[in-house]
Design a protein around this nucleic acid. Structure first.
Lengths: 146, 146
DNA sequence: CTGAACTCTATTGCGCACAATCAAATCGGG
DNA sequence: CCCGATTTGATTGTGCGCAATAGAGTTCAG
């Protein structure tokens, strides 16, 4: 066996579990969100808009979700086609496009209210471990996005 | 403010940091791997092949990296075009396609040997926290893939 | 007032991810 | 030996992610 590159061993990498876990969670969300024809990033946009309780610019959503306009623009257009949001130029600053929830977008809130609980249930993780994980990840993000 | 759906608050979700951290790490890898024209999943394939020290089937790679053939087939064809691997039917079981490293694929090993160290450096995470994070993620993956 | 710098979104192009489907090869019970 | 079930990889179609670029709108120094 080759041990000349121990630092390249697959099970030494922290990146692979992070990458695999993220995709595994996304797949689980896809199962839960398929019932209401939402993808996981679309669901995240709705979370942000429900919480903001008012229009958000594309850039605001990008900041909240760490996504850029190249991802968000087509995603938001699909959500507009699905009747979940409207897109309108800000009359004050016409560079901005304001995303607002439609009634249909608001209505979905009830239908996904149980999703977080159902997800956590499938993760088999204690409250304490969950907090520890979120804490480590938040620190990692802060460090990497400097 | 709306507090009727506390479980839908963005900062309560564990999914978002996981998702954002994974993409942040991938972006960092893209910076490091761009020098040798590798993408992050391609780099993971190489890690697996270097370690196996012999041909792997597409399915073997899929198991190791938690990826399926729909992702791997075109990815491996691109790596074949780049002269890093060869793809050949297994003469014993002709359903299988064996992926082997070329000399060019082996040569990259030296050129990326410092990547893990450079990544960890930018993550600003102690050895202990790194182990704790990997441990939590491994348990999460095991639970979600049941 | 004006033009250069800056901000914000859209577009393009490429590379994943993955569900669904398919076809070829292999295996296994009868 | 044969046929149905299983395994394996390829294909197709949709939806992200993101770098690079473009272009309209805004700001601000001079």
């Amino acid at each position: 066996m080759e041990d000349s590159y121990p630092q390249l061993a697959l099970d030494q990498q922290i990146c692979l579990p992070l990458y695999a876990a993220s995709r595994a969670v996304t797949r689980r969300y896809a199962d839960l969100l398929g019932e209401v024809s939402l993808t996981y990033p679309q669901y995240l946009c709705l979370l942000a808009l429900w919480e903001a309780d008012g229009p958000l610019g594309v850039g605001d959503l990008g900041t909240l979700l760490h996504l850029d306009s190249g991802t968000l623009t087509p995603l938001l257009k699909r959500m507009e086609s699905a009747g979940l949001v409207t897109r309108a130029r800000d009359t004050v600053d016409e560079r901005r496009v304001l995303i607002s929830l439609t009634d249909g977008g608001w209505r979905l809130r009830d239908r996904v209210a149980d999703v977080p609980a159902r997800l956590v249930e499938g993760m088999g993780m204690s409250e304490r471990d969950g907090r520890a994980l979120r804490d480590l990840l938040d620190r990692l993000i802060a460090e990497l996005e400097r």
